[in-house]
Amino acid sequence: MACEWSAKLDAYVDGELSSSESTALAAHLRECTSCATYALGLVQMKRSIAAAGKRYQPGAEFRGKIQKTIGSKRRRDGSWYWKIVAIPAALVLILSVTVNLYVNREKARRERVYSELTDLHVATLASGSPVDVVSTDRHTVKPWFQGKIPFSFNLPELQGTDFSLVGGRVTYLAQSPGAHLIYRLRQHEISVFIFQDRGDGTAALASTPISRLSFTVESWTKNGLRYFVVGDVGAQDIESLSKLLRDAG
């Protein structure tokens, strides 16, 4: 861990670096095995804690009790402490807080999905064995996922294009399993992620290629599946692979 970047890796995976630093570090990760390995470990640890940490559920009875504490009952009581809250302040509060909550949540969620996918992309390529099924043949790769993920998908014929299939692996986004396929274009690897579309507003994600850090991401839904294409190639290349996938799906 002698690398000068190593001290920034935690902040990087936590999404706390400035965009210029993130871009530089993302580029560095493609060249530095020690940083990439450490970043991969961090990403895995973050996911494990997130999954393991959501553990305790309050009972319905207790929820009712809390609702009574803060809800209508107090209101009917005409409790004294509300009288000191001025209306204008409260109105501004409602607006600013709810709007900010919404905007931040949306932004955070979108950012999170993209950063999780770009992290996965980088981490997977940095790991010793990026794919679990190694094949350039879509007829081998597609059935390999059977029984490993709760849906099936179609992959495009690549003959006559510059793209080639490297292989695939099972991956997770917010605890739901999906397919991670790796394609190659010239010297570049491109990740294709396929998940079930949970209709949770992921529709807000870009349908035209957007650039995030040094990566271009394109996303769309088709037949109940959500696709993400992530790579460090230009928007045009991402779009052509996306078109091939759309036509096949």
Partner: peptide, 21 residues
Amino acid sequence: DQRLSAATFEELALPLFEQLY
């Protein structure tokens, strides 16, 4: 006013219930 403020607090605080627990 009491009602508005109580509603505000409830609206903001109740969604945090499960996380807080």
